[in-house]
Design a protein around this nucleic acid. Structure first.
Lengths: 285, 285
DNA sequence: GGTACTGCCTGACTAGAGTCAGAGAAATGG
DNA sequence: CCATTTCTCTGACTCTAGTCAGGCAGTACC
């Protein structure tokens, strides 16, 4: 990789670490230790310890100790869950909520301090560049995972997909009318906790795999995620013995159509009776 | 400050921390602890402990222990300085240099991993945005400090200034010909260790302060540093009882001339015999 | 009712990153 | 030459952020 480009990235990392490091120390330093602060934040309006452990990736013993410390400061209470008395639920006290707001204000303070020394014009440039960096870094954090169709994260994706279609299709959309194929596998695009995209695959005829319900969340558009899902779907199908891939789509989805064409799909006559389909595509693998 | 802007900055900070944090852990984790790695880096081709303490901001006892640990691993040697045997100098052994290169490669690895998942077009955008962020964050890190003309950092600035002029002036430049006023105070612009700008002040007539040798390093141009130095110079002069400020400049320095005008300076007849001056400016405070 | 399993807590331990108070050797000032 | 200062090192501590093993209470399954 180009040395100048690598140098720019390294310099970026160093500068950001230094700048935010110094300001964090100034604004957050002397306050609560990081572990407790993150916990305080995550408890919010009450969470059971199991969830807290999972989202923060903490050891059970360590979490317990952190909670004892916050409890000693009167910031949280921990009580047994009514339904299952093994499970314990942490809740913020009034003082805890106050502390949480204070942490929040201090984080705002850091952000303001970053912008403060700049002219309005420079601020605009910095904020725009930061937004660009965040977005592009997020691209690299997306992980694509193959799950089976019964996976709990699949249904919400399909529902989000249908909801999007209802808005996009010129001639309306009804989820009940669409074909319900026997889906074999679903690729989920994950960004940390959130699921930001999906595509379903099944094998309508031996050797031919069909793509259904390719969806990318609005928060993750413009990151090339559609292309990536398509590529991973092809790889997966090929790995399972596919010799061809096909899909249908609606004329309103111009972006998707352009993507399919540029990925080597060619338009073919209708191969199914999908009610909302206007274009049918095929690609030999 | 606008909440959306603050949210963008906070999101940026979170995303960058997460992304680089995860990659650093992956590439640098398991290797040498951070403190030792930084020290190894900073020692380079041999540094005395006093300098190391200053640049890394370490406690003397702590530095000593870190060095013992690196010494035990055969990466550095520490010897008394020949001139002053109280001072000790740390040097990398061959193994130490190898280790330092390895750390370096791992840092490159992090940078490459950030770019790897992106398309060429996205990489370009990311690198451009990162450069912009670095530059603008650096603006906020610049500190302006008033020192007296004998300060050791002053002379290198003036020399850099003269070297720049020699390149810029259409009709050449000789440092020996310029006036040598009795400078009262120098403002230095500091960016971490480096001095990236300066301006000298003196009082040729009671109540009138004159600016000389305003310089901004090429690495820090376009950050509004000139304007800031000018503003700080005015503030300092006013504080010391100035009622007016003046300066002269060369016709080749069009950027500087525009800056003076926009800061409220007005062109006046020559008030000195500076050999390289074409324009003379004055501003009532 | 017994057994296995969950969920949580406690005690014991580790590593990194420091801080602080002297002690001792070398240099400097008078 | 002696006192003071400078520079470094050692020993004793601290705080944060964990990990690991074992134990107890509650729930679920047979």
């Amino acid at each position: 990789m180009d040395a100048g480009v690598v140098a720019t990235v390294r310099r970026f990392s160093r500068t950001v670490t230094q700048r935010f490091g110094a300001l964090n120390e100034h604004y957050l330093g002397g306050a609560r230790p990081l572990g407790e602060a993150r916990l305080l934040w995550e408890i919010g309006d009450g969470r059971d310890l199991r969830t807290l452990r999972a989202t923060l990736g903490l050891d059970s013993g360590y979490l317990s100790r952190l909670l004892r410390s916050l409890e000693a400061d009167g910031l949280v209470t921990v009580q047994a869950d009514a339904a299952d008395r093994r499970v314990r639920v942490a809740r913020l006290t009034t003082a805890g909520k106050r502390e949480r707001r204070a942490l929040d204000r201090r984080s705002d303070g850091v952000a303001e301090a970053v912008l403060a020394p700049l002219s309005p014009r420079q601020r605009e440039r910095l904020v725009a560049a930061m937004a660009e960096v965040s977005q592009l870094l997020r691209v690299g954090m997306v992980e694509v995972e193959a799950v089976d169709p019964g996976h709990p994260d699949v249904l919400p994706c399909f529902q989000a997909y249908f909801a999007d279609l209802a808005v996009l299709f010129e001639d309306g959309f009804s989820p009940d009318a669409v074909l319900q194929p026997a889906i074999e596998v679903v690729l989920l695009a994950r960004l940390g906790e959130a699921t930001v995209g999906c595509v379903a695959l099944y094998e309508p005829e031996p050797g031919v795999w069909e793509l259904k319900r390719m969806w990318v969340d609005s928060s993750a558009r413009g990151l090339g995620l559609g292309r990536r899902l398509l590529a991973e779907a092809e790889a997966l199908a090929r790995q399972r013995g596919a010799s061809a891939m096909r899909l249908d789509t609606n004329r309103s989805l111009t972006g998707a159509i352009a993507l399919y064409r540029s990925a080597g799909f060619e338009e073919v006559p209708p191969f199914n009776a999908e009610p909302h389909a206007h274009h049918w595509f095929h690609k030999a693998l």
